[in-house]
Every structure is written in structure tokens, then in C-alpha cells.
Design a protein around this nucleic acid. Structure first.
Length: 305
DNA sequence: GGTAGACCTGGACGC
DNA sequence: GCGTCCAGGTCTACC
């Protein structure tokens, strides 16, 4: 099977892959030299299929050696299109970014799309695994979860898809703690159970008509999801109004805009306030290395905006 | 609404 | 090898 999925230009396959750290998390496997992304994907009927994904400046190509039905091919096309946000239109953002030297590169590099997981459940679990931990720990937590609960490929027992909510819900807190999830274990278990029991319809949030603040309130109700995690998830959902304030955000904004002074969420928000609904895109893709503006001048300009 | 402390783990560091 | 300290975001209790 081979599927060619067109992307709305400008599109850069590698830009999406390198948009944030998701490409390093199981069950994805990225071969930088060949440009191939490997994804064992569990379909809604339970089948696990090995996918190889490549791409260029126009499209994403999905290949699998498996014999698949039309319905399975359609599901794969839908999930990969979601992962790469192929239909996204960033023209309005680029028009604004063209006027800002430190964001003018975004159009040329096709920046804006953030790599997503095939399901929102997977993204919520992965964002939860980024909280209160360093990146190496996040990779370990996700890998152990996949190894323990992921459904294997029929031909390769050691290659597994990301676990379903059902698989995690059937577990217990002690097992999750044994995988290193620590105090996050009851949160993860509750999340999985709530999804299985229909208390949270996560996939309905993917195309929610709710205003961003209301969507944020819903995300904050998820166990283990606080302000930082909710903002990160909003970004993955294509809502860029909130910046995920973690220690990295604090450090980089303090350095480049506040002359190293201590800052919090409020000060970070002030700096990027003028970007409105594209606030987190401006923060994330800002060319910090090329910053020439005096820190306080930027802060004052942001305040006046 | 704001703040302090607990939560849990791995890594760095000193002995 | 062992003990101690620190980093990381969320939750809960409290003011």
C-alpha cells in the first residue's frame, strides 16, 4: 500500500518532524539519514500495521507492506493527515511574521505545524509525561509504557504501537509506578479510565467549536494536566493563544527580554501579547539567537501594543 | 487569587 | 557505594 497525501503549502516534511520533541518518543522511530519515519500504528479494529512515512515540500507518502482494506487505508490517511496537520493554513500568521525580523524565517521554513500523535489520547499521555521531569525521563516513561502495554506487530513481537486507553485502564497503579510513572500513575490511570468510560471524549476536542479559553478549561479538568500541559495541548490542537510556561520558557524569555531578571507567566505573556491568537507560535519559533533588540525595549514595546 | 508543600525519579555531586 | 541535593509541573490545603 502506498498513499500520497498532499499538503497545503508551504510545507516542509522535516520542519514538522523537528517542530518539537515528539519524533524522539516511542513508538515513533526517525531515521534522520534516510528521512524515513517508522510508525507501528494500531487501527480502530485492533490491527497493528507497520507504516513508513516519508515526505517532501508538497506531500507525505505513507507506505506499508501489509495488505489493507479500503477502510483501513482511509483510517491511516486520516490519522497521518492529522499528525502532520496537512490542511493547516498559516498564511495569516506568516503575513504578521513577515514584518518581524525574528519570525520572518517561518514562511520560508514552513514553520507552524507541530507534529501530533495519531490520537489526542496519545498526545495527552505524552504531554503528561513531560511534566515535572527532564526530557530523558519523558522518553523513558513513554518507552516503558509502549513496551508494557502496546500491541505488537504480528510479525515482530518487540515492535509495538502506542497503547490504547483500554490497555492502560486494565492496568493498576502499582504497575504504572513500577514503570517509573511515580505520582503521575493515578492521573494516568484515571485519564485512561475516564476515556474508556466515555467521561472524556478526547477525539471530539480535535474539532471542537469551543472558544480557546473554554477548551482550555476542559483540558485543565484532565487529571495531571495543569496550565503548562493545557497550553501545550492547545498548541497541538491548533490553538496558539496560550504559551506553555515551563522552566525553559522562563529561562529564555528572562534572558532575551528581561535582562536575566526573574520572570513568571505574566511577564512572558506580556512579551508576546501583540501576537494575539498566534502567541505561542511566535514564542516557539522566535529566532532567539538573532535577537538584537534591547530586552527592556522589547518589553516596553510589548506593553504598548 | 495567591502561595507553600508534597509528590517521584534520575542525575549530579561530595564523601 | 552511599547519602544528599536539585530539577521538573501539578495538586491540594490554606490564607
Amino acid at each position: 500500500m502506498q498513499l500520497t497525501l498532499s499538503a497545503r503549502p508551504p510545507f516542509r516534511f522535516r520542519s514538522v518532524l523537528q517542530s518539537h520533541g515528539w519524533v524522539q518518543l516511542a513508538p515513533l522511530q526517525w531515521e534522520e539519514e534516510t528521512g524515513l519515519l517508522h510508525l507501528p500504528l494500531q487501527l480502530s479494529e485492533g490491527t497493528v500495521v507497520p507504516l513508513t512515512i516519508s515526505g517532501d515540500d508538497d506531500a507525505v507518502v505513507v507506505t506499508s507492506n501489509e495488505l489493507l482494506s479500503q477502510a483501513e487505508a482511509d483510517e491511516i490517511a486520516g490519522k497521518v493527515a492529522w499528525m502532520f496537520n496537512l490542511d493547516a493554513d498559516f498564511d495569516e500568521f506568516y503575513q504578521l511574521a513577515d514584518q518581524e525580523p525574528r519570525l520572518a524565517h517561518t514562511r520560508q521554513h514552513g514553520h507552524g505545524r507541530l507534529l501530533r500523535s495519531p490520537t489526542l489520547f496519545e498526545d495527552v499521555v505524552k504531554v503528561m509525561a513531560t511534566t515535572n521531569i527532564q526530557w530523558g525521563g519523558t522518553k523513558r516513561l513513554v518507552r516503558k509504557l509502549v513496551e508494557r502495554f502496546g500491541a505488537p506487530l504480528p510479525a515482530e513481537e518487540n515492535v509495538r504501537a502506542f497503547p490504547s486507553a483500554e490497555a492502560i485502564a486494565a492496568s493498576d497503579e502499582a504497575i504504572l509506578r513500577g514503570l517509573g510513572w511515580g505520582y503521575r500513575s493515578p492521573y494516568l490511570l484515571k485519564l485512561a479510565n475516564d476515556v474508556v468510560n466515555g467521561l472524556f471524549d478526547l477525539d471530539a476536542l480535535r474539532h471542537s467549536p469551543l472558544a480557546t479559553p473554554d477548551l482550555r478549561k476542559l483540558l485543565l479538568k484532565l487529571p495531571g494536566i495543569g496550565p503548562y500541559a493545557a497550553a501545550t495541548l492547545l498548541g497541538l490542537l491548533g490553538r496558539y493563544d496560550y504559551i506553555g510556561v515551563d522552566t525553559e520558557a522562563v529561562a529564555i524569555v528572562s534572558k532575551h527580554f528581561y535582562n536575566g531578571e526573574t520572570v513568571g507567566a505574566k511577564e512572558i505573556d506580556i512579551v508576546f501579547a501583540r501576537w494575539g491568537k498566534y502567541k505561542s507560535l511566535a514564542y516557539w519559533f522566535w529566532d532567539y539567537a538573532g535577537t538584537q533588540q534591547a530586552p527592556m525595549a522589547a518589553w516596553e514595546e510589548a506593553q504598548q501594543a
